[in-house]
Computed example of a mutant assay.
Amino acid sequence: MPLKKAALAALIACPALASAQSSVTLYGVADINVEFANHVGAIPSAANGFNPGTSNSVYRMDSGGLSGSRWGLRGTEDLGNGLKGVFVLESGFNLDTGTSQQGGRLFGRQAYVGVQSATLGQISLGRQYTSMFEALANFAPAAYATQYEPVVLQSGANFREDNTVKYTGQFGPVTALAHFSFGTGLALPQTGASAIAVGGNGEVPGAFRRDSAYGAAATYMAGPLGIALGYDQWNPTIGTGSGTFRKAAVAASYTFGPAKVMGGYRWGQNKNAAGAGIARDDFYWVGANYQVTPALGLTLEYDYDKVHNLYGSTQVANPWQVALVADYNLSKRTDVYLSAAYARNAGLTLDSVATAYATSLSLGNSYALASGQNSMVGVAVGVRHKF
């Protein structure tokens, strides 16, 4: 009897003990929509002779319109003396098919562990967002909406990187960020006759620079005013060497009443392993959020890319896009939305050979312009639930 009583007491005590020690939160987003888009072609590749083919209109179901569908685990542990152990494991998935995103990674969106100081900041190690991408998050009018915001053109296809050491510090209204990746784990195929394949697994013995990356950023948020500065560099594998892809950005926002206006500029320059220019552009964006009622919010965004040089051509038509989002909250966790966009001289999200069609490849839905076309329209109606 004493043994049975002891076992029963242990079973009863276990949940309470786990609850007291646990600081793990399960969270996620389920976002899905039905979309129409016109003038859609195939993603150019060696298999189709880099020819996107004839124009088609598509009617499809997409996972992720305003947010990428995901589930994750986030945890902290108090270590004493103002220190905490922290971790995040976040998995992206396709809600329409139940498959994993980010190349089939189990935790492809984020996967890191670190130590956080109440006064000195946080050091984290693993797969993480770049400093510039994180700094610009509050200055992207559509809040990095998966479907139509040109995130890859703005921050680079390497906005998530493997093997990364990252610092984040909060000092009053200023947030400082810096990171270094030993190997980004990003590979983009050749998507045009003059284009090149870039990237790889990185962390190659004897080739420390190959696929490495680093960057830094800072934001200032005080009252209605916000300012961000950022720099990012990726050294992707190109042939047997490594190139140099650089980006720098500045952005600002101002909030008054139910409205927030924001905009920014991003300078970009890509060079091959020999130091010759691959691409040079200036990207601009401007937009606004307006809360019409507590339930209804509107977003308008305009993006423009001034292309100075792309694979040796200086006569490239400059891509631009205008996008609108109407989002209606049915509750604190569930909303319905309408997204629409018109892109010129590139596909939606401004996907083109300049971005190696990285958005289309990642989503599994082509936004490549068909042969002979120079514009694309997209409209989507969806529902999102946050848990």
Rank of each mutant, 00 (worst) to 15 (best):
Y231G: 02
D232V: 08
D232M: 06
Q233S: 12
Q233C: 11
P236I: 02
P236T: 01
T237Y: 00
I238S: 12
G239L: 07
G239K: 03
T240N: 11
G241I: 03
G243E: 13
G243V: 10
F245D: 08
F245N: 13
R246D: 11
R246F: 04
A248D: 10
V250T: 14
A251V: 09
A251C: 14
S253L: 05
T255K: 11
F256N: 08
G257L: 06
A259I: 12
K260Q: 13
G263D: 08
Y265I: 09
R266H: 06
W267E: 13
G268I: 00
G268Q: 15
Q269L: 14
Q269V: 07
N270Y: 08
K271F: 09
N272M: 12
N272A: 10
A273Q: 13
A274R: 02
G275D: 10
G275P: 11
A276Y: 03
G277R: 13
G277I: 10
I278M: 10
A279E: 11
F283T: 12
F283K: 04
F283A: 10
Y284C: 05
Y284R: 05
W285I: 03
W285N: 08
V286T: 12
G287F: 04
A288T: 10
Y290C: 03
Y290K: 01
T293H: 03
T293Q: 01
T293G: 04
T293I: 01
A295V: 05
A295L: 15
A295D: 13
G297S: 14
G297N: 14
L298N: 10
L298C: 06
E301V: 12
H308G: 11
H308S: 15
Y311T: 12
S313I: 00
S313Y: 03
T314I: 00
T314M: 00
Q315F: 01
A317S: 08
N318G: 06
P319D: 08
P319N: 07
P319K: 03
W320Y: 14
Q321V: 06
Q321E: 14
A323E: 11
A323L: 12
